[in-house]
Design a protein around this nucleic acid. Structure first.
Length: 271
DNA sequence: ATGGTCGGCAACCGA
């Protein structure tokens, strides 16, 4: 069975619901994972998604900040949500696609939103960066985020770290910029390795080539300057990574009217 | 070297 899954930091799902609808109508992913919904669960636009053909929804939202959601054409076998660093921040929601979705083998899907970490890359003076580093450490040690050897599992989302040299427009100029400092890159890779995860996007675009999913709102002309970063990721368990047959970064979405600063990333898998 | 832009929600905080 062929399944397509999209991850997209939407930066307010209510403000950009028409952009989401435009994307859905064009791409028709089976599962859409959103971050930064900035929306309490009782205000989430469920009816709009149901009308678009996505009646199955798993939410972990809060008022004003953060918030994650999984909207799906396929039903879930189960859903869960985890909180990190003893905070109430809504940064994880997980589902299992299995029997009810028509999959022969159940697949676990984690949708994550890692803290951005503020501007100052020194955890001793910037509590937001200290929190980001603690969050990454907890991702590394969390048993529920570990992919068992033969398990079908995906971890995706806005991980807010661009770990590789060509995940940023200038490795040298970004070394002291939060999202590409050595300490957070090391911690993200450590979490990836500890969980047994494969970096799916880099199976399709080699590490020697530039690959971005985010462009700052602050650029005068994001497209001309093209100072992007790969902040959004798709990780898969080894057995499922071998079944991923396609990966698309919808760069054009950054040029839509009133865009998110992140663009959708879609993977196709034979589940 | 610096400041540049968003969204939520009604002051600034988080990004």
């Amino acid at each position: 069975m062929r399944v397509t899954i999209t991850t997209w930091n939407i930066n307010s799902v209510r403000l950009r619901i028409d952009l989401v609808a435009k994307f859905i109508k064009a791409i028709r992913p089976d599962v859409l994972c959103l971050q930064e919904t900035k929306c309490p669960d009782d205000r989430f636009p469920r009816k709009r998604f149901a009308r678009l053909g996505y009646p199955h929804i798993a939410l972990n939202g809060q008022k004003g900040y953060h918030g994650v959601a999984i909207v799906s054409r396929l039903p879930f076998d189960r859903t869960d949500a985890h909180h990190f660093c003893d905070r109430h921040d809504c940064r994880h929601v997980g589902v299992t696609l299995g029997e009810h979705a028509g999959l022969s083998e159940p697949a676990v899907l984690h949708n994550m939103y890692v803290p951005a970490g503020g501007d100052e890359p020194d955890p001793s003076i910037n509590v937001k960066f200290a929190h980001k580093l603690a969050f990454l450490d907890e991702m590394r040690s969390a048993p529920h985020l570990r992919a068992a050897p033969n398990e079908h599992a995906i971890l995706l989302g806005d991980l807010n770290v661009a770990p590789l040299e060509h995940d940023v427009w200038s490795h040298k100029q970004m070394l002291r910029v939060v999202s590409h400092t050595p300490i957070e890159c090391e911690k993200l890779i450590a979490a990836q390795n500890a969980g047994g995860w494969i970096d799916v996007m880099r199976r399709f675009v080699p590490a020697s080539e530039k690959l971005y999913t985010w462009w700052s709102y602050r650029a005068l002309d994001w497209e001309a300057s093209d100072r992007g970063r790969r902040l959004d990721h798709v990780w898969a368990s080894p057995v499922l990574a071998d079944r991923v047959t396609g990966m698309t970064v919808a760069r054009a979405a950054r040029g839509w009217t009133r865009p998110s600063d992140h663009v959708p990333v879609t993977v196709t898998l034979e589940a």
